[in-house]
Design a protein around this nucleic acid. Structure first.
Lengths: 132, 132
DNA sequence: ACACAAAGGTATCTATTGGATACTGATAGC
DNA sequence: GCTATCAGTATCCAATAGATACCTTTGTGT
């Protein structure tokens, strides 16, 4: 067990790394970061790429990432306006750990989907069997 | 830019890896997995360790992880009952990528907190300056 | 001159989720 | 019987996510 090395403070509700884990774990944040991995992208492009996100939520996500210093927001004085979002150096440093996680996910997707089906079937059976 | 290697399907709302990312990114799931990295833990122990989580939410989290085949739930026929949660092999395989992310988080916590302060200060200034 | 389009958002409202608190059910010990 | 322990449910309320409509600025077409 080589995980004993994690500091107990991860269990402390006030531990800052918990707060950061939440940002990384955010539904859209990690996706945005990975999309920005290819270079700056403007707001409307992001909307198209992450197609199901609403503008409100995308804005919230981007503001949070900007606040944490993971991305920058640059407004170009044009009309119509052009706003580019770009990873900071720190944001780029997240790409590697994130891609490892993505790799893991892709490797295990089939197994997980099978597990879900099996679990759901078992639930159905239990429901059908019990109301005697 | 070595991130071009990510399959475009991460942008597809129906892409399974998005679904999995959501589970990993879940507020409590990744924490539970890391806690279970040291071996099986019973429900009440988990509650104490992840102290701020309510039983309802903990149960939801555990069920979801079980459904995905990441943990197992074993009920011991005792009174008072004893229920142990334990990582599956697949669950254990998540420990490594997860710990890399945790490592990253711990390395960057100070920078992120500084960025937040700076951002908030800038916001305050903007608010104080504008209502002329 | 006037309407419309484009970009990057807000504003508003509703649906879903998260969280606090209280309670249940089985039994062992007092 | 009364109470405590454990692993949860049940209920209710607050916070968050999401759908939809709208706003602002200016360039362009007519």
């Amino acid at each position: 067990m080589d995980t004993k090395d994690f500091p107990a403070n991860i269990l402390d509700p006030n531990c800052p790394s918990r707060v950061i884990f939440q940002r990384i774990g955010d539904k859209w944040a990690s996706l945005v970061i990975q999309v920005l991995g290819d270079g700056p992208v403007r707001f409307s492009e992001l909307r198209k790429m992450v197609s199901v996100v609403t503008p409100k939520v995308l804005t919230q996500t981007l503001r949070a990432l900007e606040r944490d210093g993971l991305i920058t927001r640059t407004v170009h004085a044009q009309v119509p306006p052009r706003v580019d979002y770009e990873l900071t150096a720190m944001g780029e440093s997240l790409l590697h750990p994130l891609s490892m996680l993505r790799q893991w996910a892709e490797n295990h997707v089939p197994t997980i989907l099978e597990a879900r089906d099996a679990y759901d079937d078992a639930q159905d059976d239990a429901l059908l069997g019990s109301p005697s």
